[in-house]
Amino acid sequence: MADDNAQGFVIGDVEVFPVVEWAGPYVPLDALVPDLPPEAWREDEDLLVPDHLQGGRAVVALRTWVVRGGGRTVLVDTGVGNGRERPGNQLFHRRQGDFPERLERAGVRPEDVDVVVNTHIHGDHIGWNTHEVDGNWVPAFPNARYLLPAADDRHFGPEGGYAGGTRPDDRLMYEDSVAPVHRAGQAVLWDGTHRLDGGLVLESAPGHTPGSSVLRLQSRGERGVFVGDLLHSPVQIPHPECGSRFCLDPRQAAATRIRVLEQAVEERELVIPAHFGGSGAVRVAKKGGEFVFRNA
């Protein structure tokens, strides 16, 4: 897969660009968004193919967003990571890739990162929080504060029995990608809202996980919103009631998705999910009372 770093954009005075760990057709669209009416994707086929849909399979990307402005470098989500034990997902299990090299080719050295935002605690959003040094997992970004939703930290950590102990991967991902950040004193837990500065604000957006969040960016009158896994495919925009198979509380996730999309329309925010194909971002509007989208 070719580097995707060139497909960035600017919001006001802030540079935003992706570093892609992996991208390609993943699973059939109806397996990713199981409640989607069978005919729904055909309604927007011209907008979905080929960036978001190929051969009936949803195109997804494991993407970290780099947000650079005001002398600060922020990473939004950190992918899967290398060498992780993830027996529940063979795409992630013991993966080996060149993400650190991709990050450096994009002009980002580990010591330059000031803030890491994990929109939620899932294995494909926290993996490069850490790397292995002499057999131990340690923070990959030595000078960064790691912003973690407190509700997810409780749910997926030992306090919540590692998400109730139903999936071995949940304990594994917490212990190799979150616990080392706590031990290093670099973790910052937050609830409700958390302001990074005048132009970046984290807000709770629960449903996908208990602590799922969005990051709002505002600069010089322009706006964007990083929505993490609130959306897995653009086809959910005209059908916001349809969640992904990974949502822990589908009903709450749908209500959150509608609320965030309504604000995106009102504020003219660029919607920036974690996993979309193509440029990774879309514009959202309303037509006839329904949400519509176009690729950014």
Results as ranks from 00 to 15, higher is better:
M1G: 05
F17A: 01
V20L: 10
W22F: 00
Y26F: 08
L29H: 10
A31F: 05
P34K: 09
P34N: 11
P38G: 02
P38A: 01
A40K: 12
A40D: 04
R42M: 07
E45A: 01
D46F: 14
L47Q: 12
L47M: 11
L48Q: 14
V49Q: 09
R57Y: 08
A58D: 01
V59A: 01
G69P: 05
G69K: 07
G70P: 05
G71H: 04
G71S: 09
R86A: 05
P87I: 15
N89C: 15
Q90C: 12
Q90D: 08
L91N: 15
F92N: 09
R94T: 11
D98C: 04
F99L: 00
P100L: 07
E101T: 06
L103Y: 00
R109C: 13
P110I: 00
P110L: 03
V115F: 04
H131G: 06
W137N: 05
V138P: 13
P139G: 07
L148E: 09
R154G: 01
G165R: 05
D170V: 09
D170G: 06
R171F: 11
E175G: 11
V181Q: 02
V181S: 03
V188H: 13
L189V: 08
G192C: 03
R195M: 10
P206T: 05
H208S: 04
H208E: 06
P210C: 04
L215F: 05
L215P: 05
R216C: 07
R216D: 08
L217F: 01
Q218R: 14
R223K: 13
R223W: 01
F226G: 04
G228Y: 09
L230P: 01
P240T: 12
P240E: 14
C242I: 12
G243W: 11
G243R: 15
F246D: 02
F246Y: 15
A255Y: 03
T256S: 15
A264W: 02
A264N: 06
L270E: 09
P273C: 03
F276Q: 12
G278C: 07
G278L: 08
S279F: 14
G280C: 08
A281W: 11
R283F: 05
R283E: 14
K286S: 10
K287L: 06
G288N: 11
N295W: 11
